[in-house]
Simulated assay, not measured.
Amino acid sequence: MPTLTAVLGDLTDQHVDVIVNAASNAMRGGGGVDGAIHRAGGPAILADCIARFPNGLATGDAGWTTAGDLPARWVVHTVGPNFAAGERDRSRLLSCYRRALEVADRLGASSIAFPLISAGIYGWPRADAIAAALEAIRSSDALVDDVRIVARDAAIHDEVRAAIQAAEPS
């Protein structure tokens, strides 16, 4: 089982093999985490998204691109369900984490940094977003040994850290 940690900071500053992007279906950049990754990584990420995903990506799926100027080797893009728009199938949220870990394994990655998928502008209730992230990561048979959930907000970081600690065996 991978080491799972909560990190307070900027996802785009993580020195890992894979930074996970909470992308839109179009895979063309946007707001929130997606916009931050594209801004920090530069135009190479968008160019690779266009080349590799001309028709975008389905909700719950994941695929990789270059990391451009980010301090990572790859970006794994995954499309979370938009709770605010009525997409409430939790299995798709779980799939985001599982598929991202599968892609990271195929790339040979040993470290990965996730945002809290769908919990921002997509409006997934935060407590369940955290629970889904931990459930998917802990049940994965991925070979990645360093898994981080990165939060810019101290309150969210504290919630993720507490959930991780509560789920650890005594």
Score class of each variant (00 low, 15 high):
Ala109Thr: 00
Asp13Gln: 13
Leu46Val: 06
Ser110Pro: 01
Asp146His: 12
Ala129Glu: 06
Pro71Arg: 06
Ala23Asp: 05
Ala155Ser: 11
Thr78Asp: 03
Asp10Val: 06
Arg138Glu: 11
Ala162Leu: 07
Ser110Thr: 14
Leu46Gln: 05
His157Lys: 08
Gly120Cys: 07
Leu116Val: 10
Ile117Val: 15
Arg39Phe: 14
Gln14Leu: 08
Cys49Tyr: 01
Phe83Asp: 10
Glu168Ile: 11
Ser24Tyr: 07
Val144Gly: 06
Asp146Pro: 04
Asp145Glu: 14
Arg92Cys: 00
Gly56Phe: 02
Ala151Trp: 07
Val150Asn: 14
Gly68Glu: 08
Arg161His: 13
Arg92Asn: 02
Gly29Met: 10
Asn82Lys: 10
Asp48Gln: 12
Gly30Tyr: 10
Ala163Phe: 08
Ser139Glu: 11
Ala67Cys: 11
Ala151Val: 08
Val79Glu: 05
Ala85Thr: 01
Asp34Leu: 09
Gly30Val: 08
His38Thr: 05
Val103Ala: 12
Ser24Arg: 14
Ala23Cys: 07
Ser110Ile: 06
Gly9His: 13
Ala67Asp: 03
Gly68Cys: 08
Gly35Pro: 04
Val147Leu: 13
Phe83Arg: 13
Asp141Met: 05
Arg90Trp: 02
Gly120Ser: 08
Gly42Leu: 00
Arg39Glu: 12
Val18Cys: 15
Asp89Glu: 15
Ala154Tyr: 01
Val20Asn: 12
Arg73Met: 07
Val75Asp: 07
Glu159Thr: 05
Asn55Gly: 14
Ala100His: 01
Ile137Thr: 15
Ser111Pro: 06
Ala113His: 11
Leu101Cys: 06
Arg98Cys: 02
Ile137Leu: 09
Met27Trp: 02
Pro115Val: 00
Gln14Asn: 03
Pro81Ala: 06
Leu8Tyr: 03
Arg126Pro: 05
Gly86Pro: 05
Ala127Leu: 03
Asp128Ile: 09
Ala133Thr: 03
Asp105Glu: 03
Leu116Trp: 04
Ala167Asn: 09
Leu4Cys: 05
Gly120Leu: 13
Phe114Gly: 02
Ala85Met: 04
Leu107Ala: 09
Arg52Phe: 00
Ile130Phe: 10
Met1Arg: 12
Ala85Gly: 04
Asp146Arg: 15
Ser170Asp: 10
Ala129Val: 05
Tyr122Arg: 05
Leu143Met: 10
Gly32Ile: 08
Val103Lys: 01
Gly108Thr: 11
Ser110Phe: 03
Ser110Glu: 15
Arg98Thr: 15
Ser139Arg: 11
Ala155His: 09
Ser139Cys: 07
Ala100Arg: 10
Leu11Ile: 14
Ser170Ile: 12
Ala22Arg: 12
Glu87Tyr: 08
Leu11Asp: 11
Ala151Cys: 15
Ala58Thr: 12
Glu159Asn: 00
Arg98Tyr: 00
Ile19Tyr: 00
Ser140Trp: 09
Asp69Phe: 09
Asp146Thr: 15
Leu70Pro: 10
Ala133Gly: 02
Arg39Tyr: 07
Ala133Trp: 02
Arg152Cys: 05
Ser91Gln: 04
His157Leu: 08
Gly35Gln: 06
Ala155Thr: 09
Asp34Gly: 05
Asp10Phe: 02
